[in-house]
Design a protein around this nucleic acid. Sequence first.
DNA 1: AAGGACACCAACCGCTGGATA
DNA 2: TTATCCAGCGGTTGGTGTCCT
Length: 295
Amino acid sequence: MGRRPPCCDKSHVKKGPWTDEEDAKILAYVASHGIGNWTLVPQKAGLNRCGKSCRLRWTNYLRPDLKHDSFTPHEEELILRYHQAIGSRWSLIANQLPGRTDNDVKNHWNTKLKKKLSKMGIDPITHKPFGQLLSDYGNINEIIPRNTRSLDQRHHEPMDFSRADSSLTMLGPVQEQQAALNRINAHFQVINEAASSSTSSSASKVQVNLPSSPFIWSDYLVGDDEEECTNKPDPSVLPIIGENTSAYNGLGADQRKNCLDATTTTSASFVESILNQDREMQFEFPQLLDGYSEY
DNA sequence: AAGGACACCAACCGCTGGATA
DNA sequence: TTATCCAGCGGTTGGTGTCCT
């Protein structure tokens, strides 16, 4: 059995920023030949670049359907939701945002959204308040006996969606991951429709209402103690939160009640919350967690 | 005005799974 | 069957512009 030749001589191809001339060659090539075997593109288009580099340049910058303007608050909202639900699967998230690439979404997350969440005291990985994570860390040490911890941790992952994340990996085929994402989409849509029908909608409102699911990061703007309930998020993140005043003010009826009840809420509530969320995830998206029960 | 710090983002790197010879 | 390539993906880096002191 023979070997295929390598796509290019890595030591002699050009690297670094693309010139207008190189861009024009790619565009001309794609216009006349379409998208096909990228390894042949450098040779056929007259470029001293690796095929992989050509593909990246096309997919991340030259594609005609790409948006080059800044992210809208609605797009940021979607990124936050999807990141909370499926983690850093940028390509899947980007698929939900027409005209955006995985690189766009990833860069925007790393440079803007992650910082905004941190500034609000919310862990960008778990989408939970830092204070809750710290108290939960203590709770886990108390709840799980040392000699069984390594086994039990598989059933008590501190990050609620990391399990969904792992299960998505187990699903394997991209189609199944996409199907799972579609179900999450449907879930958001149902919640949004319910929310919008129960509240008077403003004509100028461009935000999608945050679902009233226990997974929503902004719900944690009101903390688990009375002091935190009085805190308001940084105004710079309001475009993300939108006009959801319960998230902003913490003064919605339920939120007020949460504040009043806060004194009776123990720090263990976070762990219980995660377990409840996990059960709900299994109920809502059973296929997401397929295979996890094997543990 | 200078230069250091910071933010942004295009591009690269390395890994993985499927395809191919 | 095996070794290798390729496309796709997420993580990381480095160049450039902007802001701040």
